[in-house]
Write a protein that binds this DNA or RNA. Structure first.
Lengths: 155, 155
DNA sequence: TTGTATGCAAAAGGTTTGCAATGAT
DNA sequence: ATCATTGCAAACCTTTTGCATACAA
């Protein structure tokens, strides 16, 4: 159930080319590196976390660009914003259906890949009023690292 | 599958008394009104939206208090922060298990109550590494109001 | 009376915008 | 050459913090 990160990154690189061509967008170095940085992590980074990674790879990129490019990726389907209870956006380069475990203590977000969960029977009647395109389950609880310390710390 | 809003509000009022007593918290007017305002909406308001409502009911409440009290409610189990892809917290006074439909066009969040969805078989093995306390499904798509206009407007 | 909760002001994140300069096509 | 994209600076929005005052118990 693990995902092949190297394959994902390669796929993403060619997806980017295709998506830029299709949408009439320029294939800039910034877009290439930002997508590369996003696709190489599975921990659903915030825009600022992506920015940190990008800075290591190329000099002089601005935070603004990272924020803007990530939004562009979402709008052309190269990435998703994931639902989370924090007050900041988190991004995921894996746009296929999967689910999340979020630790209420430390905030970590782990992936859940499961066939049964990916094929739920939707409640009847709903689709009359709402056109459902996708869904994602967020499991909340405590990760193993935080299970030890019972106090409400954020280490 | 509708929820009885009046009953919910009354329940919440007595829940508040009980929770304050239990946790050694003062039963202030602010806490009473803030919970009242939150419980009387089913649209998962942001802290600022709750603040707006509170201002109508009592004068001179500060935004800070609303933010602080909502966090208090979450910590004593009177409310939940709901997972969403926006960069701001949204709150829900209904702490029982239920799910959400979010319209990607207009952003509205509707509730889904369904017995089957509330009793999913969790993937085996997960609970070894992660202590799951709850879960919630976010369905994404287009609401009936937005289904008409195919353009990506936000009206 | 005692200690918690509130209000204020200010700061701290996180994100967006306007505009000139840069760079991909 | 042209127009989209970037970088910068500043604004904006949401949330948090420190401290003195007010209020519930």
């Amino acid at each position: 159930m693990e995902r092949d990160l190297i394959a994902l990154c390669k796929n993403k690189a060619s997806e980017l080319e295709a998506a830029c061509r299709k949408n009439g967008l320029a294939l800039t170095i910034q877009r290439r590196v930002i997508l590369e940085c996003l696709a190489s992590r599975t921990d659903h980074p915030t825009a600022d976390q992506v920015y940190e990674d990008v800075c290591v790879k190329i000099k002089g990129v601005s935070r603004t660009t990272v924020y803007r490019v990530l939004e562009t990726f979402v709008s052309i389907g190269l990435a998703k914003k994931i639902s989370n209870p924090e007050s900041k956006a988190r991004f995921d380069a894996d746009t296929t259906r999967h689910h999340h475990l979020t630790c209420t203590a430390c905030g970590v977000v782990l992936d859940v890949f499961d066939n049964d969960l990916n094929n739920l029977r939707l409640p009847s009647g709903i689709e009359r009023d709402f056109e459902i395109t996708d869904y994602s389950i967020t499991f909340t609880g405590t990760c193993s690292a935080c299970s030890g310390h019972r106090t409400k710390d954020h280490g």
